[in-house]
């Protein structure tokens, strides 16, 4: 379980997060939604210790992220990082191999090799394994990074808007893969999403942030209503039922 207590976060005197306290259940997919500037990415970065905590406390499976060994945390929790143009000539398989660093400190074993191959195969990268990162498309590069944290083999996976560079087929494939990780391997996925429909279709648990505070959380089917969308986003898209599933109708 990821448990977050009383987090405040300011950037240059401007409040980004205010008194955020919540628990993200272990196993399953938790989606984080909210309007632009609600503090979703900041919250994710704080959980993954990419930003230093200013106030409050975060624990992952009981480990306080401020005090526990960062190398040990890297074996429990992984975040999809942004590395747009760092190391452009790195090959795909070398990048994915970095995912094993927390376990083998760069001395790859046969078992690591097998995990890397499996990660490459899971993200359709086997044919591209020797290509340099700067020769790939945005979506392929994103897949390479996903394969890297997949190979990291952590119980917790944090993803910040991973669907941004992907078309609908790749988006659905990725969401199905994350669903599979949660259902078959019992992993915990926390994902920032822009499209509420993906959250409704794939998430078990929903956290809605607005203006740096938790506006709502719970079962997506119950949380997402006409009223919530109107209140949080200030637009009057209707939530409709289709084949027993809720969908946000974005039409006028």
């Amino acid at each position: 379980m990821i448990s977050i207590r009383n987090i405040d976060y300011d950037i240059a005197g401007k409040a980004i997060l205010r008194d955020v306290s919540l628990d993200m259940p272990k196993h399953g997919v938790t989606a984080l939604i909210g309007p632009n500037g609600a503090g979703k990415s900041t919250l994710l970065s704080l959980i993954a210790r990419l930003l230093p905590l200013q106030h409050g406390r975060v624990t992952v499976d009981g480990h306080d992220i401020a005090t526990c060994d960062t190398a040990a945390l890297a074996r429990i929790l992984a975040i999809l990082p942004q590395i747009q143009d760092a190391a452009p000539r790195l090959s795909v398989s070398d990048l994915v191999a970095f995912g094993r660093y927390p376990h083998s400190r760069g001395r790859l074993t046969d078992q690591d090799g097998a995990i890397i191959d499996a990660a490459l195969a899971a993200f359709q990268l086997t044919d591209l394994r020797n290509r340099a990162l700067d020769t790939l498309s945005g979506g392929q590069r994103q897949n390479a990074l996903l394969a890297m944290i997949f190979a990291q083999g952590t119980d917790y996976l944090l993803l910040d808007e991973p669907l941004n560079n992907l078309d609908i087929a790749a988006s659905r494939r990725l969401m199905a893969q994350l669903r599979g990780l949660a259902d078959e391997q019992g992993r915990t996925v926390v994902i920032v999403l822009h499209d509420i429909n993906y959250a409704l279709a794939y998430a078990d648990h929903l956290v809605v942030l607005a203006e740096g505070r938790v506006a709502a959380m719970g079962n997506p089917e119950e949380v997402v209503t006409d009223d919530l969308i109107n209140r949080i986003y200030g637009t009057d898209a209707a939530v409709i039922n289709h084949n027993n599933r809720r969908i946000v109708d974005v039409g006028p």
């Binding site: 960062t70 942004q82 190391a87 660093y101």
Partner: peptide, 20 residues
């Protein structure tokens, strides 16, 4: 040398992989 390889990936990626 292996730590430097990880560090070269940038702050976020290196932190994710457990480097201080």
């Amino acid at each position: 040398r292996r730590q430097w390889d990880v560090l070269a990936l940038g702050h976020d990626a290196a932190t994710n992989l457990g480097l201080r």
